[in-house]
Design a binder for these strands. Sequence first.
DNA 1: GCTGATCGTCAGTGTGACTGACCATCAGTC
DNA 2: GACTGATGGTCAGTCACACTGACGATCAGC
Lengths: 147, 147
Amino acid sequence: MTRDTPPEVLTSRLGYLLKHAYLRLNEESSRALAPHGIDGRELAVLAVLDAHDELSQLEAAGKLSVDRTTMVALVDALEGKELVERRRSPHDRRKNIVQLTPAGRSRLRDAESARQEVERRFLAPLSSTDATHLVRALQSLVGAPSS
Amino acid sequence: MTRDTPPEVLTSRLGYLLKHAYLRLNEESSRALAPHGIDGRELAVLAVLDAHDELSQLEAAGKLSVDRTTMVALVDALEGKELVERRRSPHDRRKNIVQLTPAGRSRLRDAESARQEVERRFLAPLSSTDATHLVRALQSLVGAPSS
DNA sequence: GCTGATCGTCAGTGTGACTGACCATCAGTC
DNA sequence: GACTGATGGTCAGTCACACTGACGATCAGC
């Protein structure tokens, strides 16, 4: 491996910085989540399901910005680990309501705190006000409701 | 498409923010670069080759943090567009020195200014000091030499 | 001149997400 | 109440991307 300091012509590019910041954070998250038996995407699914009741697969997919075909595999995996359950909506039998199981809820708690710890460590090079500003700036760039 | 406002449980996550900021910027860059006949990765290659003289494929791959097998296809594509040239290093005939052609240099100029324009537009929601702080913060997170 | 390492190349593999088609179900219309 | 178009979940096929492993050519050290 020819590990190399990236040249200034790259580190001055916003695209490069965002991508590599994401990749690094993602890698550390994966490592931290592995003992919990899930990955970052699955954790995000659990978090969304926990935050909203009675979501169908398609609704959850919408919130997560993933394709509904991708959602199938995601729910399959989580259902296989008995962290979520599918059940037919009584009001619209086309829909699969996806819900956390008790095991899913507790797994979410544990994994979520591991994720937060990773995020804290990742932001450690910044002062706490700089870290806050970074998050706010990113939120306004992605058009997120800045709470 | 079930386009949905992402829930707060996601937009408070650094990973989500970095990923989606990157994806959005990337999409706009692709659109802006398409008329120039290259994509963001190819532009990065051109920029690195322009910034350093006499790079071998492996050295360029190192600076770009891409695998050397990936570099083959990248150089193949750029060579096909006659934007770069391979030539055997006279000092080490295992190495392919990759160099910009005159066409590559002028394409780089044009595409690079298009990329900068996209970046400016993307950062428009932020004040100029906030934008600067964002870049600095990201640079220190990815461990880049903060110029 | 041997031997082990390095560089570029290619075939094969794996992953992730998409497209298109399908079936079941729903809502609206007649 | 049957027909029609739209919707939700599923699956097979595909595409993009990057990696692994192997190979030939070349180099450096002995």
